[in-house]
Every structure is written in C-alpha cells, then in structure tokens.
Design a protein around this nucleic acid. Structure first.
Length: 269
DNA sequence: GCGGAATGAACAT
DNA sequence: TGTTCCTTCCGCA
C-alpha cells in the first residue's frame, strides 16, 4: 500500500540483500510460475524504481516488473524461507535471506524492450535524479483537470499518491479544485522542489512526514499527530479535525474515486 | 469474529 | 462513475 517512496526503499533493500547473488525464485501461489522459472538460478544484478513501479533485473537480461497496487506487500527477512502461508505470488531466496511478495496488482516478466516500454509510460519521478520536471510542467499547462487529479496521474507525477497529493497542495496553499492550467510556474516549481525533498525524505525514513520540518511557523511546537499510516501530516485522513494552521475543519470529498483531504480555508484558491 | 477502509489503477459501462 | 483485483489492518461488537 505504498506511494513511490516505499517502492524506492524496497528497490534499495532488495538490491542490498540480493544484489550479486544467485537466487532461487518461485511462485508458491502459481500465478507467476513461468516468470519465476525464467529467472530462477540467475544472479539478481540490479533494481530500479520509477514512481510506484519496481523492476528487478537478472543476469539473463530479464526483469521482473512489480506494482503493489493498493494491497501489495513485500517482506524481506534473514534466514531460510519459512513454510508457505497464504498467497505468495513471488518468492526470492538466497543462501542467507528470503523475500515474499503478496497481493501485487502487477507481477510480470519483461525483456529489455518490454521494460523500456513500461518506463516510457511513467512520468517524471521526483525521487529520481534523472527526472525531468519540464514534463510535469507541460502536462500541468495543457490540462484543465483539477490539479488535485493531475497530481495523482502517474504519467504526470510518478510516485505521488493520495498522501503526498493532499500534503503538497496544503503546504503550498493550493486548492485541489483549481484547474491545473491555472497553476503558475512559480507555484509549480515550489511544489516540485517540495515533492523532491518530501519524497526523498520519505525513502530514508520509510514514512511520510510533512509536518516534521514545520514549514510554517504556526505549527512549530505542536504535539505531533501521527496518522496510523505511520507519519505526521497536515490534512491526510484528518477530516473533521481542526487544521493545524488555522483550526478550520479539514474537509473530505471523493475526487475520482479517492478520498481527497484539504483545508477549505487555507486552500481556498 | 466481522465489516469496512486502505498509501492504486485497469477496465467496463 | 462504478467494479474488480485481493491483502492487511483497524474499529467495533
């Protein structure tokens, strides 16, 4: 159930754990049996994260492409793999460690060309050093969609999910309903730079903290309010509670099937 | 123990 | 706009 920062952290973790090692790969659940067989016994040589997409590369030029969706989960641990419990789509085992993947929305085998095709569909990712923010700016300028919807579009802002969307809009006092093409360059630049900082920080901490650095003096010194997702936030999942800055009630509304949280007072335009 | 919701996105209608 | 994928966790009996 991750946004992009978790996927990047997992990519690093998988590389640190299995990189350079021959691994046994299987699919106890059976749904990825063919793909697993194609890479099992090979060396896991690299991993890549683009937005919420994870790619695991092997020494036979094959990649496993994983997208966790809403439910997917990795468990990476030391020691031999335990007896199979539940539905394990993909399992990676080395002499010293094992990893189990459950519930992903995507787990497929790709060759180099297939991987490139997949990457081409993904927009710039603020966590990646090679991200080109101009691509995001171009999308923003050309879209009349609400900016709150465009921020969730993975071909425009890769890796941004419901929490980062809500929080970055709050931090820049932008209404989620403002048409994307009315956001000026200065505001976009500020939001992009902020996403770079917040999301990279998320990779390190493995959680989303947007209040931690107290970007607004009004919130300094307040009691931390840690959401059960494991981070400290301004508006995400705080509907009905007072805004940490102005004390108005945080609002909630469904936007394109997802719960959107914002402060109608701080983010009036 | 049960129901609902959840950091997502493709697909049908 | 609604359904589906399919897992985990939480709040509430």
């Amino acid at each position: 159930m991750p946004e992009g920062h978790v996927v990047h952290a997992q990519a690093r973790s998988l590389l640190r754990t299995f990189g350079g090692h021959v691994v046994a790969v299987d699919s106890p659940q059976g749904r990825f049996a063919k793909g697993a067989k194609a890479v099992s016994g090979h060396v896991l040589v690299r991993t890549q994260a683009y937005g919420k997409h994870l790619f695991i590369g092997f020494d036979n030029e094959r990649w496993i492409h994983v997208h966790l969706g809403l439910y997917g989960k990795w468990v990476i641990a030391k020691g031999p793999a335990p007896a199979v419990r539940g539905e394990i789509r993909l399992r990676i085992v080395s002499d010293t460690h094992h990893a189990e993947l459950r519930g992903p929305s995507v787990c497929e085998l790709l060759d180099a060309a297939g991987m490139q095709t997949a990457i081409d569909r993904i927009g710039p990712d603020p966590i990646r050093r090679d991200a080109d923010p101009e691509r995001a700016w171009n999308r923003l300028q050309r879209s009349r969609q609400p900016v709150g919807a465009l921020l969730m579009d993975q071909s425009a802002f890769a890796g941004v999910g419901n929490i980062y969307r809500a929080e970055v809009l709050f931090r820049h006092e932008v209404s989620p309903f403002r048409p994307a093409n009315t956001v000026d360059r200065e505001t976009f630049d500020a939001m992009w730079s902020d996403l770079v900082v917040l999301m990279r920080d998320g990779v390190r901490r493995r959680r989303i903290d947007t209040v931690r650095d107290a970007h607004l003096p009004e919130v300094m010194g307040r009691e931390p309010r840690v959401d059960r997702h494991g981070g400290e936030v301004y508006v995400y999942r705080r509907a009905g509670q007072p805004c940490l800055v102005c004390s108005s009630e945080v609002a909630i509304e469904s936007m394109q099937g997802r719960n959107l949280y914002w402060c109608p007072s701080c983010q009036s335009t």
